[in-house]
Amino acid sequence: MSGHTEILSLRSVGHSFGGFSVLKNVNFSVPHGSIVGLIGPNGSGKTTLFNVISGYIRHQHGLVAYDGHNMQAESIQARSSAGLVRTFQTPKVFEQMTVLENIMAGACKLTRSGVIEDIFSLPRSRADMRRIFELAEEACLKFGMEKLRHDLALRLPAGQRRVLEIARAVIGRPRLLMLDEPSSGLNTNEIASLRRWIEQLRAEGIAILLVSHDMELMTVADCVHVLYFGEIIASGGMDEIQKNTQVREVYLGA
């Protein structure tokens, strides 16, 4: 771990689509091993912010620093390799692959065999596949998907797709895991499991940036930021946020 206390730091981040500002002077940070929540009404810029941090959108103003490094010029793949991994608002699973293969795909970046080694099935290629397979089997057990592991992802219900996407992100050993609406489509038991996994991942030292409309789940966060029309209008613990008059007016309801 580096000397920085924050794994992610955003300073005066701004972005516009055409003439419309979707992010305005956004400042916040995610300390190592913490859970930070991001809430706000639909259209407030949460997903755009996720896209900026993960590199899908190149922001126009401000600084996004990951582990002390400016990420402006870094590709999505470079960020992912450095441990900055995200999930999507609508789960994007690999539908024609099995559950096990989906999870294995998440571990490919931990290995280094090249196409030539793979074509000729050289020792490093075989060792890489054994490692990926073992890690994926462990992840299947950890996320309760062992009975589904040979099913095509295409056949999974919405809730299981979301769990699969999280398992696939976690197997790649992230240092900052960005979860976009992870509880959407999950039933009460599954949300309880999700909460346990999130807490367990934090205990393993993984920082989490969590976007969710589920205020119950959001209580897992150490700090919550409220985004409204591209600006952070409040920050603090969930109890504090729920008492904030402005937040109640614009998002939570009186």
């Binding site: 991994v85 999507f88 692959m97 065999s113 196409v115 793979d118 074509i119």
Partner: peptide, 25 residues
Amino acid sequence: NLIRSRTGLALRAMRDSQDAAISLA
């Protein structure tokens, strides 16, 4: 050999969802 390797996994991942595959490096 290629299809059964990590390259094969990455190829099929990219085929099924390029956005998700990119997020996995």
